[in-house]
Computed example of a mutant assay.
Amino acid sequence: MDTTTRSGAFRPVLLLTGAYAALSVLTLVVIILFRNDPAMVTDAVWVRATLVVASSLLTFAFARSAARGSRKGLLRLRIVAAVMLVAIVVIVALPGLFPLWLRIEQAGCGLLLLAVTVLVNGRRPRAR
């Protein structure tokens, strides 16, 4: 299978990981804009958002690598997506640790990563 076909097959994964990265960056922008509101932006929010932006950009980079046919890229994508999904589930489930708005945003990220995890662990990516 050539690179173009492989990239086409990975288009949904690229779109989902791109949306995850965009949502994460947008969230960091919101945090910067509301940095003087202690009810909305806590130290934990800063740390979490920074980590999520970094992981989302890595996730997108791994998806691009996997789309080009890299087995290591696919393995990294599987690991990072699954680990971040578990971390997000914990964050959304724990009451009081983060403001409600961030937990809702993280739930959105979690849904995107759930779809990525299902797609990259299905039969088709392994066959390629």
Rank of each mutant, 00 (worst) to 15 (best):
T3A: 13
V86G: 02
T17A: 05
V118F: 09
L15C: 13
G96N: 10
P125L: 01
P38T: 09
S56Y: 05
W46L: 15
S24N: 02
F98P: 00
R78I: 00
R123G: 01
K72W: 09
L26H: 13
R48W: 14
L77W: 07
A82N: 07
L85S: 01
V29L: 12
R78K: 15
A61R: 15
N36Y: 03
A54P: 08
A115Y: 07
G69L: 07
V29M: 07
G108P: 06
L33I: 05
M1Q: 09
A49T: 03
A82I: 02
A54T: 12
V116S: 03
A93P: 04
R11E: 12
I79H: 06
L102M: 14
L94E: 06
V41R: 01
L100H: 12
V118R: 08
R11S: 14
N36C: 00
V13W: 12
V13D: 13
A61E: 11
A49H: 01
M84D: 04
G110S: 03
L119T: 00
R124Y: 03
R126M: 13
L14A: 01
V41W: 04
V52N: 10
L111A: 11
S55F: 07
G108E: 09
A19T: 04
E105A: 12
G110I: 03
V52R: 13
L94C: 05
R6W: 05
V45E: 11
A9K: 13
V80F: 06
F34Q: 11
V92S: 04
L102I: 02
L33D: 15
V45Y: 14
L97W: 14
G73Q: 10
V118M: 08
F10M: 09
S65K: 07
L112E: 06
P95E: 06
D43Q: 13
L74Y: 03
G108R: 08
V83R: 11
L114K: 01
A63E: 06
R48A: 13
L51G: 15
A67W: 12
I88V: 05
L58Q: 15
R123N: 09
R68Q: 08
A22T: 10
L23N: 14
G96S: 10
A21I: 00
L58Y: 11
L23Y: 10
F10K: 01
F10C: 02
V52H: 12
L97D: 04
A127Y: 05
L112W: 09
I32Y: 06
L51M: 11
A44D: 14
R103N: 02
L58S: 15
W46N: 13
R35H: 09
P12V: 05
L100P: 01
V45I: 05
L114S: 11
